[in-house]
Design a protein around this nucleic acid. Structure first.
Lengths: 185, 185
DNA sequence: GTGGCATCTTGTCAATGGCAAGATAGGATC
DNA sequence: GATCCTATCTTGCCATTGACAAGATGCCAC
């Protein structure tokens, strides 16, 4: 079905999103070009407009997809440390999605589908934090959630930016686990 | 000197960097246009090229300036908590610089001046961490530095992205202090 | 089989980045 | 003081892009 060579592509919307991931992995979201995506998918330069309206529309869809994938990854984690590591793993494995998700000026933050997906992510994060603070009456869940989110998000962002020194190593999974333990233990 | 209306601007390089900060504050680094900067500075569309070569050149200069400003801010902090809060304050007060600094695909990461400025920032951060770990022989300075950097960077990034829930409040300074204490106390 | 509609194409326009060639000014040298 | 010399800035140009408009195509309901 992906090789249907008629006038109709078959699943152009999906193909464009996949091409966008590829292009963003290569050169970042700034360099993204709708016409380039159209070329990658083998359609005319104006075809993407029908499915996404404009560039912001395409990135909105990509961000929503990203928040859904992130929610899945967080929900599969057993405890907070695992969730933190899963967060970093997600950022590395789905770099393109991640880079768009936290750049709201690139998409329409008021999109309904996106807000719903982001809500699922937030809920998964908060339920992870809840596993920590059951034994301590003085615990501040809000603060703990914010601290956990911050350290995981910060490590992931710095890793993707290539800002971390070489001595951290080449495996983000292990490095993240080591760093996150500093907060969670 | 800023109002010299002759053929020569006076200090076009500085004026363009200032205009870039303004433009990025308004619409993010992605929407930055060299021609728009030229218009803001009152010069022709090709004038910026002489000072910065191309867009990446201008953003390289902006990132280097940012790392210098960050180093100054970190060096003025007394302890690690203060450094963390200063890091977040810097990100909020110099949003445009910060947003470019950690997006290496936008500039030339091999620029000598930029590498030197980034080195000053890193040194300031590490010296802040050193104030923490003097009393504990089992302390892992590398890990602590990474954790501290991650949580400050993550909080700053999430704040700038508008990703934090409303209940965090409107003052990044106080909110950052509260969250960072979770790691540093 | 016919009409309707989603999908895709072609054509066009303004804006942008970048390059080339020329104009101007301010200072160095004599 | 005249002349060159070089950094600075301008004008002109081209390929690429995003967005829009109008038309072509094919699938599906009826």
């Amino acid at each position: 079905m992906t090789s249907s060579r008629g006038y109709h592509h078959g699943d152009l919307r999906r193909a464009l999103l996949a091409a966008a991931v590829e292009a963003i992995d290569e050169a970042g979201p700034t360099a993204l070009s709708l016409r380039d995506l159209a070329r990658r998918a083998g359609v005319s330069h104006a075809a993407p407009a029908h499915h996404f309206g404009d560039k912001a529309g395409l990135l909105t869809a990509l961000a929503a997809e990203g928040f859904d994938l992130l929610a899945e990854a967080l929900e599969a984690a057993d405890d907070l440390l695992a969730a933190g590591v899963a967060y970093v793993d997600f950022a590395v494995r789905h770099r393109a999605h991640f880079e768009v998700m936290f750049r709201p000026e690139l998409y329409r933050a008021d999109d309904a589908e996106l807000i719903a997906a982001r809500g699922r992510s937030s809920a998964a994060l908060r339920s992870g934090v809840a596993t920590l603070s059951t034994d301590d009456a003085s615990a501040d869940t809000d603060r703990d959630a914010l601290a956990a989110w911050s350290i995981a998000h910060g490590f992931a962002t710095l890793w993707l930016a290539g800002a971390l020194p070489d001595r951290v190593g080449a495996d983000p999974h292990d490095a993240a686990r080591t760093v996150l333990r500093r907060l969670f233990d």
